[in-house]
């Protein structure tokens, strides 16, 4: 499957990836202003820029081959999408036990701040053509590439 690769040498720490991620998962996926000003709550970004200046990079779920979160999930809410191979979380089944957050070696699963009761994570923007973080990175620091491709 295609994966999102972070090129930390070009990450400028602007956090536009986080902003667009939050927006496209909001009630107003196509309108940043509405997403941030009109929606009752802004969704938690599913990508996080890790920084220790000048080093910075955006990290989101790696959609692991052998995902710890999926094995650890006590309700079966975490599952692999057969078609795309993406690891997704079914919010209907998630009970917010946070086990996945504990076991994720990348820290890429977050508590959903809107409900406070379930987790949220990168869904690879399967509803869109390309992940929003990749599309809106102004410096090409996030790239969608076939696994095992260059860099």
């Amino acid at each position: 499957m295609k994966r999102i690769y972070a090129q930390e040498k070009y990450c400028i720490g602007c956090r536009l990836c986080e902003i667009y991620c939050a927006a496209v998962h909001s009630e107003y996926p196509d309108d940043l202003v509405k997403a941030f000003k009109k929606a009752a709550m802004v969704p938690t970004p599913r990508v996080k820029v890790e920084e220790e200046r000048p080093l910075s990079f955006a990290l989101q779920c790696r959609h692991c081959e052998e995902p710890h979160c999926l094995k650890a999930c006590i309700t079966g809410a975490m599952y692999r999408d057969e078609e795309t191979g993406a690891i997704l979380n079914d919010k209907e089944r998630c009970v917010g036990c946070w086990t996945c957050i504990l076991v994720c070696p990348y820290g890429a699963i977050f508590k959903d701040e809107i409900t406070g009761k379930v987790v949220t994570k990168c869904d690879f923007c399967l509803h869109m053509g390309q992940p929003a973080c990749v599309e809106h990175c102004p410096n090409g620091a996030l790239q969608l590439k076939e696994e095992g491709g260059d860099e």
Binding site: I12, G13, C14, R15, I19, L32, F36
Partner: peptide, 9 residues
């Protein structure tokens, strides 16, 4: 939207 991109840039 107070995203602070300007502050960081």
């Amino acid at each position: 939207i107070k995203c602070q991109v300007c502050v960081r840039q």
